[in-house]
Design a protein around this nucleic acid. Structure first.
Lengths: 154, 154
DNA sequence: CTATATGCTTACGTAAACGTAAGAGGCGTA
DNA sequence: TACGCCTCTTACGTTTACGTAAGCATATAG
């Protein structure tokens, strides 16, 4: 029976992720599943100041805003920003303001990062070409040796 | 005057890199310049068993074969192999043999690596697309805020 | 003889983003 | 009461390829 259940315990009680989709707060396990990250990652991000979930006792409770933040963080990581950079951008967010600074910084960093990614793609393409070439060479050598072996045994 | 000069000392005496291009042995400084790596890198590769230059006393002397080896190592690194993998492949080299094993291993590793590189390129392209999208969004927001500011001040 | 360049060995430091115990609650169920 | 599941904090470990002193020897140039 649910007597003096805390919100956290209540969430824990729910059978599936589905069941708690209307909850305002989710705990770290749910959060991790939803975003496909580990608990360690969430705690790590918090330790680095990227997340700030509420607490109920010691238990972390994440809201929709935390969800949105995490999505941004993961997007940042996906496009190659370091957590430090992501933090710099996020920290500039001001719910009551134009966020001009934040937007400028984000734009600037994004353009630089885009440049880096494009340069990366160039060297990656170059590497692919060179590796393909190497494969051809190796195949050629193998065919050659094979030919010798065959002619020698014939 | 050149009295009892060692080979190393002789090399050291030469005015430019040009002058020693016909030398059979070059020292670490020359080697580093030719391949655009640091001395530390060459010593590190040796420590890891990737290079085995001769010695004259304590001084490392590199030959054409070492040059060729280093080129291979740097090519390997360029295409994304770890030094460990490069070593595995190089270690299989037998000057008196068909090197069938080496060729097979190299081919196998190369094909896997090629796959990895291509997957990398896909996620890189995806990242580029997402980042471009982000830039557009940010630009849009800035324009919006700017518009508000302008209309507010008008 | 000294200053400068080059080389040697040994070995701790670095970066990024977590992984991985270790030890300890809290809560509900069989 | 015991068991199981979730969560917490603290903190050392991991990976790769070198960077960076520190302290010393060698060697030619001035």
């Amino acid at each position: 029976m649910m007597t003096l259940m805390t919100a956290a315990a209540a969430a824990n009680t729910n059978d599936s992720a589905e069941a708690s989709q209307h909850e305002d707060f989710i705990r770290i396990g749910e959060m991790a599943k939803r975003h496909e990250v580990t608990l360690r990652t969430l705690r790590f991000y918090e330790d680095k100041g990227l997340l700030n979930p509420r607490r109920e006792g010691t238990t972390r409770l994440y809201t929709r805003r935390d969800n949105a933040r995490l999505k941004l963080i993961l997007l940042g990581r996906k496009v190659g920003f370091s957590l430090r950079e992501v933090k710099q951008m996020i920290d500039l967010y001001d719910p009551a303001g134009s966020n001009a600074k934040q937007l400028r910084l984000t734009l600037e960093k994004s353009e630089k990062q885009l440049g880096r990614l494009e340069r990366q793609r160039q060297s990656l393409d170059e590497a692919i070409r060179e590796l393909s070439g190497l494969i051809d060479v190796v195949r050629g050598m193998m065919a050659e040796r094979q030919g010798q072996a065959v002619s020698a045994s014939a």
